[in-house]
Design a binder for these strands. Sequence first.
DNA 1: GTTATTGCAAATGATTTGCACAAGG
DNA 2: CCTTGTGCAAATCATTTGCAATAAC
Lengths: 165, 165
Amino acid sequence: MDETIRERLEEFIRRKGLRWTAQRDGIVRTVFAKDEHFTAEELFDRVRRADSDTSRATVYRTLSLLVEANLLREIDLGNDQTTYDPNFIDKPAHNHLVCIDCSRVVEFEDSHIELLNDCLTRRLGFKPLRQSIKIEANCEQLRLKGRCPNLIASRLTGKRLKKRR
Amino acid sequence: MDETIRERLEEFIRRKGLRWTAQRDGIVRTVFAKDEHFTAEELFDRVRRADSDTSRATVYRTLSLLVEANLLREIDLGNDQTTYDPNFIDKPAHNHLVCIDCSRVVEFEDSHIELLNDCLTRRLGFKPLRQSIKIEANCEQLRLKGRCPNLIASRLTGKRLKKRR
DNA sequence: GTTATTGCAAATGATTTGCACAAGG
DNA sequence: CCTTGTGCAAATCATTTGCAATAAC
């Protein structure tokens, strides 16, 4: 976990008169241990594995806290559970592409989008605060060759399979 | 309701070996009577008012049908219930701006976005199928003057207040 | 010591589903 | 007729919450 994150969180907790607890520490550590997207339940499992006694409720409550502190972002991947993205600290303006074929999620950044976003909202009379783009797309590789070897390793970061009820 | 919609739906129903029922007729009619966004529950109320005997389950089932038939789109407005948007037939590439101040939803179209979307996905090796942008923004008018007189009548279409738990 | 935090289990609330009956084609 | 559709109520399932016990500061 980046030291910046802990500092920012400590600052947030101090400012709001909250408390730094062992459970919060464990959860935050787990959240930022990897750069992968996750759901609350997935996080709960991971936390449990590392630190047997932390309740599901506390995990949910800490997630809300992190979102409020702007250290974590909720994203909508089209399934029924909220997905959390820990990568907005490093890439504050990134967006997501969901591969329809393999359900992989690819993160991408593009400054043009932000520019456009600004012009557009200003024209409409708004001041943009946050913006999210989700692109659903088919894999070209899959269509041309046989299998979907969609790694695009250089730009890929948050991968996570879609879970359906 | 546009005649095109009924034709498209009849075609879809025929092709899939489904049946045209009174309930479906009532629901579809209600869905496309206005151009406003709605949730399943809101629709259920509206349908009930017009046609007393249609069950909640049938409303949900018909909504899925319409989405599958590509006549209706699910959109994510950040609250916990699915919002449905009946305006994608007229404006196939529109997107949504959510006013943080008054929670109003403004629809907008911008061809640049689509262009960008295409370039981007092609560069990443994908063929874009559908794309959704949600911009959350503050009302400038509100900041400058006092109240949020955000009608922007010309471009505004789907308005609907956010419902919070 | 106060006040915030936690764990538990129960509550919530949107959506889905099993089933027996009804109704399209 | 033969299937698909419907209503009902019960089931799901992620998330939230009330409360008594616990732990920060």
